[in-house]
Amino acid sequence: MKALGALGWIYLAALFTFVFAPIAASVVFSFNSDRFPTLPLGHFTTDWYARAFSRPEVWEAISNSLIVAGVTSVIATFIGFATAYTDFRYGFRFKQAYLALALLPPTLPLVILGLAMLAWLSQVGLSGTLTGIIIAHVVLATPFAMAICRLRLSQMDPSLESAAWNLGAGPWTAMRYVILPFCAPAIVSALCLTAAVSFDEFVVAWFVSGLNRTVPVLILEILQGNVDPQINAIGTVVFLTSMSLVVAAQFMIFRRRRNG
């Protein structure tokens, strides 16, 4: 049995290595002097970072990404919260269809959503704009916000809200003083997570973006041309950004779950 346990650890470590190898490798390669890295590694350098971040189009893409992720997270979290609250509070006809609409978008292949978005946004004159990317990213990110807020609401005693109503609070007052404070950690967490979803998304953004490239779209275009380790440098910065967002989101949910 002991031997089986050791084998189990080795197997688990191998699987995690496979999953995380590309992430670790891209960080290592970003500080490595070789243009085509191999073993043994070359010497340490920050040259790729200096080169990548001296390009004006990288800064333009970063600024685009920040705008898109910021606006997306606010809209998606609002819609996600409203949907989660509706699901938590009300039963109504066609609720199954309503929830399907809320949760389906991430299961559709992104290439298909990209094509549909491109075609539709061109019809209404929004393709090639940051607004177009934001619209698409809200569609993709809302289900995540909805799931997080719904999880939090399910930890709330439903009679709390009715109690507030019975004590004379109108529904808006109850929302303001009972439900929103209770959901605050989930809302912050949803803001982080939806920002991370938007910050990493490149397929739909690539179809829709035109000349307004976000960071992942820029990476994609560099990958199609002359590739060099600058991609690792940009990628490492993107990793760090999204991971901070995800860790912050998980921290918020977890801390509260332990207390509540």
Partner: peptide
């Protein structure tokens, strides 16, 4: 959960090199 929120493009490029 972390890999979901890290760019799959960059990971694919890392595999290209590896």
């Amino acid at each position: 959960i972390v890999p979901f929120f890290t760019s799959f493009l960059v990971r694919a490029y890392a595999w290209q090199v590896i």
